[in-house]
Structure formats: structure tokens, C-alpha cells
């Protein structure tokens, strides 16, 4: 089961990378960043960590590893974190919200929307912490 998930997340990340036209030599490492993010998400979810924490930590993992890849390959960081982020997008909840609004079930729709907003917030939080950690680290190690 886990192997299927890993293969799928690798392919999905590379697929989205092709859609936004990232350079060829970044594709492979981008795929692995995506796998790392998705596996982190799954592991925390399986350990009953909750959706928010899972999303936040997965975004943190993606942020840190894409900073690492960006330094290593000397390419902009967004090449790695945009495609890797796509599996974390709350598609399921957004879909439920739209369906409930269309059917006229407004209360359920609003609760779904709140979930979407909270997941988006959790992902933003994860990125923020990764950026903070990276900046602090580079400020300590690289003295200008």
C-alpha cells in the first residue's frame, strides 16, 4: 500500500512539474521532495495526529527539503515546492463544500469551507516555519 502511495506521489509531483514547465534537470529531485511531503503527511495521519498537524508538518518537510534542493542544484526554491504542494491541496473538502452549496445544504457547506481554510492555513504555517528555520540557520552559519 505504502509503495503504491510513494509511486503515485512521485508521478503526480513530476506530472504537475511538467504542467508548470520546470527545467528538465529539476524534475527528478522535485519528485522526491513530493514523495517526502506526502509520506510525512500519511505517517502523521496514521499516527492519529490529525489533518491540520499532518498538513503543517508535511508543508514544513517540503519547505525544508526544497530549500536544501535549491541550494544544492542552484535553482529557485519555488521550482521544488510548487509541484510538491499539490497533493496537499484540500481538494476533497473543497469538493464537498461546492456540492453542499449546490444542493442547498448551506450549513454543511460552511463547515467544509472552514476546514478548507484551516488546512490552507496549516500549510501556510508549515511553509512559514520552514522559511524561518532556514533564514535563522543561514544567518548563524554564514557571517556576512
Amino acid at each position: 500500500m505504502m509503495i503504491i502511495q510513494i509511486i503515485c506521489s512521485y508521478l503526480a509531483t513530476i506530472g504537475f512539474g511538467i504542467i508548470v514547465n520546470i527545467p528538465h534537470r529539476a524534475l527528478n529531485s522535485c519528485g522526491w521532495v513530493g514523495v517526502l511531503g506526502w509520506v510525512t503527511y500519511l505517517v502523521i495521519k496514521m499516527a492519529n495526529g490529525g489533518t491540520m498537524l499532518a498538513n503543517a508538518v508535511a508543508a514544513l518537510a517540503i519547505g525544508l527539503s526544497s530549500i536544501f534542493m535549491a541550494r544544492k542544484l542552484k535553482m529557485p526554491m519555488i521550482l521544488f515546492n510548487i509541484p510538491s504542494l499539490v497533493p496537499l491541496v484540500p481538494g476533497g473538502q473543497a469538493y464537498k463544500a461546492v456540492r453542499n452549496f449546490a444542493v442547498g445544504n448551506d450549513l454543511a457547506a460552511i463547515s467544509n469551507l472552514v476546514q478548507v481554510a484551516m488546512i490552507a492555513g496549516a500549510i501556510a504555517m508549515g511553509f512559514f516555519i520552514s522559511e524561518l528555520a532556514a533564514r535563522t540557520y543561514f544567518r548563524i552559519t554564514v557571517k556576512h
Binding site: 504537475f16 519555488i78 515546492n81 499539490v86 456540492r99
Partner: peptide, 25 residues
């Protein structure tokens, strides 16, 4: 549901979302 979610995924505005977060921070 599953077919729709899967089909819509390539259209997700991934670049604006990520950049919005990074720009604000």
C-alpha cells in the same frame, strides 16, 4: 466525487497559492 476531484487537480492554481503565502510572509 473521486473522478471529479482527480480530474480537477491539474487545474489547481498551485503557483499563485504558493507565491501568495511566500509574498505575504
Amino acid at each position: 466525487g473521486m473522478i471529479t476531484i482527480g480530474g480537477v487537480m491539474p487545474l489547481v492554481p498551485g503557483v499563485p497559492i504558493t507565491n501568495a503565502v511566500r509574498d505575504v510572509f
